[in-house]
Structure formats: structure tokens, C-alpha cells
Amino acid sequence: MTSTDLQEIEARAADWIAERDRYDATLPPDRQQALDAWLAASTAHRVAFLRLEHAWRRADRLGALPASGAQRRRTPLAWIAHPAVYRTAAAFCTVLVAVLLVTQFGRSPETQRYATARGQREQVALADGSHLTLNTATHVRTAVTPRAREVWLDEGEAFFDIAHDARRPFVVHAGAQTVTVLGTKFSLLREGDRLRVAVLEGRVQVKAPRGTPTVLTRDDAALAERDNVLVTRKSTQQLKAGLSWMQGKLVFDQATLADAARQFNRYGRKQLVIEDDAAARIGIGGVFDADNVEAFARLLHVGFGLDVNVVGDEIRVSSPAS
């Protein structure tokens, strides 16, 4: 809502109060009906009217006190319209509108949005002391208030280092899945309606829409889908390898070339295209820079004898011609 909108609402509310005052606080039925309709049309209308009505009554009380001649000539409505008072009133009105919106629609004015571009990482510090690390092409929304802590993972991957607070569980909404914690370290990767979870410390509860809540502990990894949560046990080393993206690295332990290509393609503008099944099944191991797919492609050519051709934004990899 713009300042001009607020000014117009304030002016209309003042007109209604002045009209009602002319009728000794009791409007004719048709005018009362019109006022009721105006009040019902918008929360901002009701807030402005109630606030100015309170100011009007206070001005009446002030008018009963001894005053100078100039002050006696100032009407209650003129007192309300004083520029300094008006600016304060408009600001107060804005705050009340925000509070009522939270109450009526469940929307928090503290909600913040964060996003990373392809190949970008970002650190996010929350008001409760928690920290988020966003991976490439990730979109999150956060709402941390004195009563609740919530995050919406709309897309991508993030690592969560959550400050312990028994009074306020930390809740992450990732599509249909919900993750609830008190204080822990874990990562989430959202792939459409699927959610991959890895827990480094603490306990995490994962709830799928049509499943029972599943509690994960340290070194647990899970794949959550709409109907179930599949949990596997991993070593700490394996879990940390999965978080190598936080240092800008990709770690592969006998991954297929097809899987490696999918990982690289999350980060760079140039996309790896594996053109045949034989090349796609080759096992890959090692540590690589996530933002240097060209070096990885050169390794495929030199180390595996694969054909590598650059066509526009694609790096096409294929088995050598027989």
C-alpha cells in the first residue's frame, strides 16, 4: 500500500468521523449503512477509522482543558490533520495493517527471500542464530519470529546449522514434505516432489504427506517421497563428501559418468551431454571443481579416450568411433 493510498484512506476516515459528529454520533440509517460498507471493504479502512476515532475523542477531552485563544479556535479535526500528527498516524496505521494481516491471513511481515543463481553459493544468517548455506540455483523463504521458526525450500539445496531452541522447533517446508528439528546440522536437496536428507548432528523428523513421521539421527540419509521415507545409514565421511559443494567441489566415488554429468550440469552454463550408453556407464572417482566442467571434459578425453566436442553451450561426450 502506497503513502498516497494511506493518505486517501485517512482523509475519508476523517470525513466519516466529521459527518457522524455533525449528527451527534448517530448517523441516519442510509449513511450508517454506507459507513458500514466502507469499513467492511478493507482492513486498512477499519484501522484508520478506529485510530482517528480514538484521536477525535482524545481531542475532545483536551478541548475541555484551559487553553489560549488560538488553541480554543482549533477544532478536533484540525488537530488530527496537523502534519506531524498525520505522519505519525500514517505510520501507526501501516503497522496496524501489517499486524492485522498476520492475524487474518497467517502471513508474516518478517518473511525474507533468498536465491542463488546457477553456480552461486550464499551464506544466510537468521535472527535466531541459525545459519543456512545455499547451493547453486536455490530459492528459500524464511520467517523467524519470537513464536516460530520456519523456512520454505522452494527449489535447490541447502545446509542447515540450526541453533537449539526447545521452545521454537525449526520447521522446513519442502514441497509436500516437512522437516522438523530443535537444533542440529543437516542438508536438504529438493528434486521436485522428492527430498534428500542427510543428518550430520542431532535428530531430524521427516514427514511425508501420506506417511508416518520418521526420525533420523546422526549419519542417517533419507529419500522422502509422497508415500514414504526410505532411510539408509552412511559413514560420516560419505555424508561430508556429499557436502563438498560447500567448498565448491564435487566428490565422486565410482559414480557413473551419467550421474557425474547431472551433478556438473547443476552448476555451469555449459552442459555435459553424454551421447551413448557405453560412455554413460563409465565409473568416475575423484574430487573436481564444480565450476570447471571444461577441465573435467579434458580428463575424460585424456584419461578415458572419449571423444569430446564443444557445440555452443554443450560439451558432447561419446565413446570413440570404432
Rank of each mutant, 00 (worst) to 15 (best):
N228L: 10
I282Y: 11
L188T: 03
D307S: 08
L272R: 08
L182K: 12
E225R: 13
R233Q: 14
G202S: 10
E191F: 10
T217G: 07
D289Q: 11
A174W: 09
D277E: 15
G183M: 09
R269E: 07
A224Y: 05
R269S: 06
F170D: 03
F296S: 02
V204G: 00
Q177H: 12
D289R: 08
A260S: 02
Q247C: 11
T236D: 12
V215A: 12
K240E: 12
V302M: 09
K270F: 12
F252A: 02
G285I: 00
L257P: 06
R194P: 00
G183L: 08
T256D: 03
A297T: 07
E191G: 08
V171P: 01
A241C: 13
L243I: 07
V273K: 12
L300I: 11
R218W: 02
L195G: 01
D227H: 10
S187L: 09
L182I: 15
T214A: 09
A224N: 06
A279L: 06
L230Q: 12
A176K: 09
D253S: 05
D220F: 12
R262G: 10
R210G: 01
A261Q: 04
R266M: 04
G211I: 00
N265W: 03
A222K: 03
G211H: 00
F296Q: 01
Q247M: 12
Q177E: 14
G248N: 12
G175L: 13
A258T: 11
G286I: 09
D253H: 07
P169D: 07
D227M: 08
L239G: 00
G242L: 10
L306R: 00
A290I: 11
L239D: 01
L188F: 04
T212D: 15
K240W: 07
